[in-house]
């Protein structure tokens, strides 16, 4: 069965750790890291492989720091 899989890339330095992307993800793919970027923000990151590339996180991101890729997996 074909399945859609997605992946996101977070621009960690641009991320302000607002958490909006985390709450917008329907599959709980994102969490804020315990690590911080150079500005001291806990940046967003993928914590599992359930991403379907819906881009909700990227659409919501106020700092436009998320890039989304999606691929049909046979």
């Amino acid at each position: 069965m074909a399945k859609i899989k997605g992946v996101i890339i977070v621009d960690k330095e641009r991320c302000k750790g607002c958490d909006v992307c985390v709450s917008s993800c329907p599959f709980g793919v994102l969490e804020l890291s315990t690590m911080v970027n150079s500005k001291g923000y806990n940046y967003s990151q993928m914590v599992n492989e359930d991403c379907i590339g819906c881009a909700n996180c990227a659409v919501m991101c106020p700092d436009s720091c998320i890039t989304v890729y999606r691929q049909k997996q046979e």
Binding site: V7, K16, G53, A55, A58, D63, S64, T67, Y69, Q73
Partner: peptide, 28 residues
């Protein structure tokens, strides 16, 4: 299974009309 990072698979990216400046707005 892996998603290949290539143009055909791109769903969403930061528009190029945004400058590189970090926004001064508060988080969120």
């Amino acid at each position: 299974l892996k998603v290949e990072i290539k143009k055909e698979n791109l769903v969403y990216k930061r528009t190029e009309l945004l400058t590189d400046n970090t926004m001064h707005y508060c988080p969120g």
